[in-house]
Every structure is written in C-alpha cells, then in structure tokens.
Amino acid sequence: MKLEQADVMWLDAHCECSIAELVRLSGLSEAELRELVDYGALAPLNPQEAEWTFSGDIVLTVQAAGRLRDDLELDARTLALTLTLLKRVRELEAQIGELRAQLPR
C-alpha cells in the first residue's frame, strides 16, 4: 500500500512511504533524512536499494524531527540522538500502557 495514493491512511507499519513523500510531510531535506539514517535514527525498509522506502509509522517521527529542528534549532547529530531517545520513551510508554491495562481496577 503506497501512502501517496491513498486519501485516508492509518499511519502505521502497514503502509509504505517514499523518501520524497517524507521530505514533503516533514519539511526536512532528503540530505537531512539520509543523515538521520546514517546516524541510525531512521531505518529504511530496503537499505540496499537506491530508492528508499520507509514504514508508514515513521511519518510521525520525521514530522517530530522537522518540528524539533525548526523550533529547537537542533543539528542533525543532536536530532538523531533526540529521536533515538524519544523512540525509547515511546517504547517504554507502550510497555507501561500494556502493564497498566493488566492491572485490576
């Protein structure tokens, strides 16, 4: 499923997104996105190919990256570290949510 072609789309792992679409959605340049990939903050689905595609759930991450770059004036290295830490926070929050759901009322 290609993100560009759909009008209504869940931003999750079931859709794919081209690097050009990520540029449009985030305001980051392709060079900045490639730098974030180099630092390990983003991972394409097909790193060996020239035309990268990404999982649709990455859209929210790159939009946050665009806002953080603009609002906090972060360079690519700091941005990559921030995104990595934010990802860790989201994972821990999801774990807390799952454990909380299992607690009796």
Binding site: M9, W10, L11
Partner: peptide, 17 residues
C-alpha cells in the same frame, strides 16, 4: 471525517488534502 474500523488509542489517521 470518516474513521475506518481499526482505530485504537493514540493512533493517527492522515486525511490527504
């Protein structure tokens, strides 16, 4: 806005255009 089935808490839906 039409929210198709499959929504859950914290999920994001993009309505293009």
């Amino acid at each position: 806005a039409r929210i198709p089935k499959g929504a859950t808490d914290g999920q994001r839906l993009r309505l293009r255009g």
